[in-house]
Design a protein around this nucleic acid. Sequence first.
DNA 1: TCTTGACCTAAAGTCAGCTTTAGGTGTTAC
DNA 2: GTAACACCTAAAGCTGACTTTAGGTCAAGA
Lengths: 147, 147
Amino acid sequence: MYTIGQVSRLFGVPISTLRYYDKEGLFPGLERSSGIRRFGEQELEALRVIECLKRSGMEIKDIKQFMLWCSLGRETYGQRLELFRRQKAAVEAELKKLERTLDMLRFKCWYYEQALAQGGEEGLKALLPDALPEEIQGAYDRAHAGL
Amino acid sequence: MYTIGQVSRLFGVPISTLRYYDKEGLFPGLERSSGIRRFGEQELEALRVIECLKRSGMEIKDIKQFMLWCSLGRETYGQRLELFRRQKAAVEAELKKLERTLDMLRFKCWYYEQALAQGGEEGLKALLPDALPEEIQGAYDRAHAGL
DNA sequence: TCTTGACCTAAAGTCAGCTTTAGGTGTTAC
DNA sequence: GTAACACCTAAAGCTGACTTTAGGTCAAGA
């Protein structure tokens, strides 16, 4: 069993945030002894899931719904599975968008390296949109696809 | 040249957002004819870069700084390159975190598929933390690494 | 002429997710 | 016995990124 301060250090999450999560109902079965919160293995796994679902773009109130399902037992396995499948698809989509973002950043890095080396952008602008060197044309194309 | 409404439809960005960006100084050289904004190729590329930098986690005020550098000419190539390199590193780090998030989601999907199939979690909990089937143990380990 | 639609401004409002503040309890260390 | 910690609560405050509101201009079509 851990105190709020120990969990805070363990996960690198501020104490105020843990109290906020608790107030929002994210630790439905959290025990207390004489007013003090006692975090067990269940709450640690809940916190891992909270961080995961937050990173996947889910809002606190929807995470609360999930935690509620968890405390309702086997009746809710179906809903929980559906939720994780939805978030999995969301993260896969986000990964694709981030890959295109990275393509743009790769292109811009290359562009300013060239601009610095050549002392200007003129020669570079003449290569747009489709006479770029092979190694960077792909990144440019993917970053500019559809607009 | 495009009006604000055309750009809005083209990029799928609300008109109010485009005006907000303009007010925040994200289109430093934006022209107007009798009060009406005229978006040219430069502003379209600026908007692509805005979406890219936003997705990479940058704040509006820092994007404004970048746009300012762009309007200052070749003196600022170095700063611009540095900025893109920094954001590239940030996105690469974010991609790694998202991969771990995805590992957690993969594990949870598998877990609830099993729970549904078996009618309960008991048999499953006995496999934690290191007796899981090969195909899912890796995802579990990566998702739970370091806590 | 009048009304519809696309544009404009300044200022106030909204929302999520915390964080801070102000005040209080209970236990250990000197 | 008093000071330093680690915990507690309720409520107010903050931040960033928009969005909405309220009111106005201008041009084209019926």
